[in-house]
Design a protein around this nucleic acid. Structure first.
Length: 426
RNA sequence: GUGGCGGUAGCUCAAAGGUAGAGUCCCGGAUUGUGAUUCCGGUUGUUGUGGGUUCGAGUCCCAUCCGCCACCCCA
């Protein structure tokens, strides 16, 4: 009994109709990255499990329950499909001493893996474009990263993506606040709902994120992270905000924004849309000054972000981003001699740079013409026994009311060129 | 991972225990060699999968897979 084979849950095929949109997205992204002087880096999809445990944090959701981790049967290595790429990029930069030559502006694009329950905008294999500015202390780079994002939304034709930013302060400041927060929450533990009790243990900051109205009084009275920031942290945060104001980029300071990965400090941000249901974060990032050292490199500051390709493409699709077809000419042919002639005609046209589909397989002229039309080609080149014998080809424009003409094969490319670009282009 | 809803033709959807249908798409013809319109004809199928109840299951029950929504979390 043959079993129907399906893709692994949460892992999607991108079919040609969609892939064209992906390619347009990727092109825009490459141009945009080049405009800011970022350079591509490509790291393996597979890393030693310990890298992510160390970089992302043992107590995070990603490490606790979302990683595709396994033991290599052949040699016993503990490996993990990357759930994000910042750890990999930092590992690679350290391993190859990239920072020896000064700070590095890097970017990557590719699939990530998280074993979550799939939902619209949330998949087990998903794609990110990420940018990492290694060796820059900011706040100027933080500002650059945010300006970059704003420009990309514009380049992609996307509207309504809002910026939320916050500062987590330095690690000591963060820990001091955390201690105060935990003490405060424990003192009122009896009033906490089940969800908040759980968060108190796993990620106390998340308690402040509760949507339960009954928690609001407790949340309002909680110690605020902002009050624990020292002068340097405040100055940094002010610096970032000044850049945003100069660039006239609207933003909201969201003091509850904490991010789910342990390595962040100072600036953190998310770009959010409300058109994707529950998965509204389209891009997230921040500063991670301690990570390079933690991975074993010489201490150096860094900041970056990652954006969700599937989510952005879903938005592009909503904005009506259809994709035109790329075919210029469809070569209709019937009969053995005609088929040989058709190969020559098609190659001659390709020599001129035209995109050409040659009909393959038996089919009536009628059905070939139908396919020519459906292909989106502007012109059908028609070769039957008569044309083949005469060394000629028929040319029929498919998108305008002009009659069919016949022309010698060696003048075919000229004639098609005239049709597509006008007579004056000769 | 938890809860709720769903899955019928390639696609969009009908059929509420009694013969599986429509539109679209695709194929052929009207046109002995010519497309998107028109007209005529034709195929759409293990009703996600596996069990069960029943004389009889697309329909009811159980399991499972997949999707969607929310939670959780994040891209």
């Amino acid at each position: 009994m043959t079993q129907t084979l399906q893709a692994v849950r949460g892992m999607n095929d991108v079919l040609p109709d969609q892939a064209e949109l992906w390619e347009r997205f990727e092109e825009t992204v490459r141009d945009w990255l080049a405009a800011y002087g970022y350079r591509n880096i490509r790291t393996p999809l597979l890393e030693h499990t310990v890298l992510f445990r160390r970089a992302i944090g043992e107590a995070t959701d990603i490490v606790e329950k979302e990683m595709y981790s396994f033991v290599d049967d052949l040699n016993g290595e503990h490996l993990t499909l990357r759930p994000e790429a910042t750890a990999s990029v930092v590992r690679a930069a350290v391993e190859h001493s990239l920072l020896y030559n000064g700070p590095q502006r890097l970017w990557y694009m590719g699939p990530m893996y998280r074993h979550e329950r799939p939902q619209k905008g949330r998949y087990r294999q998903f794609h990110q474009v990420g940018v990492e500015a290694l060796g820059y202390a900011g706040p100027d780079v933080d500002g650059e990263l945010l300006l970059m994002c704003a420009r990309l939304w514009d380049d992609l034709g996307l509207e309504g993506i809002r910026l939320h930013i916050n500062s987590l302060g330095s690690l000591p400041e963060r820990l001091a606040h955390r201690d105060a927060l935990v003490r405060y929450l424990e003192s009122r533990a009896a009033e906490l709902d089940a969800d908040s009790q759980r968060r108190l243990r796993t990620n106390p900051l998340r308690v402040l994120d509760s949507k339960n109205p009954e928690m609001q009084p407790i949340i309002t009275g909680a110690p605020r992270l902002l009050d624990f920031l020292g002068p340097e942290s405040i100055q940094h945060f002010d610096g970032v905000q000044a850049i945003l104001k100069d660039a006239a980029i609207p933003y909201t300071v969201d003091t509850r924004l904490v991010r789910g990965l342990d390595y962040y400090n100072l600036t953190v941000f998310e770009w959010i849309t409300d058109r994707l249901g529950a998965q509204g974060t389209v891009c997230g990032g921040g500063r991670y000054d301690g990570l390079i050292e933690q991975i074993g490199g010489k201490p150096a500051p860094a900041a970056g972000f990652a954006m969700g390709v599937e989510r952005l493409i879903a938005l592009m699709r909503d904005e009506g981003g259809g994709s035109g077809t790329l075919v210029d000419v469809y070569v209709v042919n019937q009969g053995e001699a005609a088929a040989r002639s058709a190969f020559r005609a098609a190659e001659l046209l390709r020599d001129r740079g035209f995109a050409v589909i040659q009909h393959c397989g038996d089919a009536s002229f009628k059905s070939q013409m139908k396919r020519a039309d459906a292909s989106g080609a502007a012109v059908a080149v028609i070769i039957g026994d008569d044309e083949a014998a005469a060394g000629e080809a028929g040319i029929k424009p498919l998108r305008e009311e002009r009659g069919q003409s016949r022309i010698a094969l060696d003048r075919l490319a000229d004639a098609v060129s005239d049709l597509l670009y006008g007579e004056e282009s000769e």
